[in-house]
Design a protein around this nucleic acid. Structure first.
Length: 176
DNA sequence: GACAGATGAAGGA
DNA sequence: TCCTTCATCTGTC
């Protein structure tokens, strides 16, 4: 994949998120100061060499960025996102995409277990693999991997730190 | 091909 | 009720 990524910041009351767009849509969304390499990338240096400056941005990407910003701020405010930009899942496996599609069907304020997600995609025994796919999710918040909990009611894990998971769930009225 | 992982379930203390 | 162990499936190296 040689498609250059357009990297744009999104300032919110919870910090500055970083959105990256390909020619197909939103490819990555990174938490503010997470301190870890984003999923699917070798290193920050590698990424920065592919990212382009926010000059000469295509109109389509500017439109997607407005939609992403609005959706992100809506979710952080505890509301449902009205519109989402197209998501670029190219290069990902079919299993991961099916998991992420199942995640997007979880409504705001609802939660599901890894086992329920596994059953929803027709692979009831692939619960650990579902966890792996959640961890590989490049677009957290908009693909609500934070709404997936362990079957025993515990919070489970989260790629963007558990603090973010708790915060996002709290905004949706789910407290631990 | 081996290994690791954001789980789940069962069994024992 | 809590803890430990093991089975299971997929992705990554």
């Amino acid at each position: 994949m040689k498609t250059p990524l357009v990297e744009l910041p999104i300032s919110t009351c919870d910090g500055q998120f970083i959105a990256r767009y390909s020619e197909k849509g939103l490819a990555e969304l990174n938490f503010p100061s997470v301190g870890r390499a984003p999923v699917g990338s070798k290193s920050n240096e590698d990424r920065s060499s592919r990212a382009v400056k926010p000059t000469g941005i295509p109109a389509s990407i500017r439109r997607w960025h407005r939609a992403t910003t609005a959706a992100l701020k809506a979710v952080l405010a505890g509301r449902a996102a009205k519109t989402l930009p197209p998501l670029d899942w190219s290069g990902k496996t079919e299993f991961q995409k099916s998991v992420w599609r199942a995640l997007r069907k979880i409504h705001r304020g609802q939660t599901k277990s890894y086992g329920e997600i596994a059953r929803a995609i027709g692979k009831p025994k692939a619960v650990r693999a579902v966890g792996g796919a959640c961890g590989a999710n490049p677009i957290p918040v908009l693909v609500p991997c934070h709404r997936v909990l362990a079957a025993n009611g515990k919070i489970g894990g989260f790629s963007g730190r558990l603090g973010w998971k708790r915060k996002l769930l709290a905004k949706e009225g789910i407290n631990f």
